[in-house]
């Protein structure tokens, strides 16, 4: 139902963008989607693919409990690309840690295909910001280690083929035998993505994966991720600080309020047609509407209070 509506809306957008005289009705239409999108927080009825159900996280301190996240509810559809944005310290990573299983919520629960998440596992692969490749293993061995651990009974030739295929997928066949120390930041992150995808995860979790990269490499990797996602149709949860990155990649953008006791402040649909391409996305007038709305949220309504 939701999907239909956004498809329908994309059609309208395409029609409208051909006629500049309809500028006003175009703006009106945008405003409608925006207001609609923030209204549909948690669809009820049947359980979604990945459900973050009224999740709270608090840490006990000597002066009482410190609430990091307060009643977060999100439903992620299968194959959806979801970005989470918010100021540092708002608990984005904590939220994703509860999806990956590194932490347990103090209230509510996270369910993947109706099964509560209790521990980390290869069905929810994580791409860490600092790469987290084992420095004593080559790029190939880093990928192979995961494959071998998840499917110990597969024949060696098959495991080898999976590792090689995924190195090729991220364009690193040549660097198979190099250690992480010999790879650039961008290459390391590619290996990390290949390691994650090789295990056919149901959800791919990326915690600011491109934060440490230079702008050119970052753009390259964003486009590569977009391509891989289009081919694999894996469900992606990604933390980012970069609004443009989110607008290029995501189907939906979750904007979180400032911590402590952070909530989902606003949910934004990003209806650009796929396959996306950076230039086309950025040329769309809607791009600036969405961008301004996100900026407005982050820097005016929930501006980071530095003098805490």
């Amino acid at each position: 139902m939701l999907l239909d509506r956004s498809r329908f809306f994309q059609q309208i957008l395409r029609l409208l963008s051909h006629k500049s005289s309809h500028q006003n009705s175009f703006r009106l239409a945008i405003m409608q989607t925006l207001s609609n999108s923030s209204a549909h927080t948690a669809p009820i009825a049947q359980d979604g693919f990945l459900v973050i159900d009224n999740v709270s996280k608090a840490y006990p301190t000597p002066t009482g409990s410190y609430v990091v996240l307060d009643g977060i509810s999100l439903t992620v559809k299968e194959g959806e690309f979801l970005c989470v944005i918010g100021h540092s310290g708002c608990g984005k990573s904590t939220l994703l840690d509860m999806v990956s299983g590194f932490r347990q919520p103090t209230g509510g629960e996270v369910r993947l295909q109706s099964k509560p998440i209790t521990e980390p596992g290869p069905d929810r692969m994580v791409v860490f910001q600092n790469y987290s490749l084992l420095p004593w293993l080559s790029a190939y061995e880093n990928i192979y280690l995961g494959i071998d651990s998840v499917w110990p009974d597969k024949p060696k030739a098959e495991k080898d083929a999976i590792a090689r295929d995924h190195l090729a997928l991220v364009g690193l066949s040549e660097a198979a035998d190099k250690r992480p120390g010999q790879l650039s930041g961008g290459m390391k992150q590619r290996v990390c993505i290949a390691r994650a995808l090789a295990l056919r995860p149901q959800v791919l979790i990326l915690d600011e994966p491109f934060g440490a990269l230079d702008p050119i490499t970052r753009e390259e990797l964003q486009e590569e991720l977009l391509k891989i996602w289009t081919e694999h149709q894996v469900t992606v949860l990604m933390i980012t600080h970069d609004i443009d990155e989110a607008l290029l990649l995501a189907d939906r953008l979750v904007m979180m309020t400032n911590g402590p006791a952070a909530k989902v402040g606003e949910m934004m649909d990003i209806p650009f047609p796929r396959p996306r391409n950076r230039t086309r996305v950025m040329e769309s007038p809607l791009y600036y509407e969405l961008r301004n709305q996100a900026l407005d949220f982050l820097y005016r309504r929930f501006a980071h209070d530095d003098v805490e």
Binding site: G101, P120, G121, P122, F128, S132, L145, S149, V150, P152
Partner: peptide, 23 residues
């Protein structure tokens, strides 16, 4: 980070020992 990787990959005790802990 390495321990997190081991947890996500659900490395066996032996694999964790030889591929992560010892090196």
């Amino acid at each position: 980070d390495y321990n997190n990787v081991a947890k996500v990959l659900q490395l066996s005790k032996l694999k964790y020992f030889t591929k992560v802990l010892l090196p």
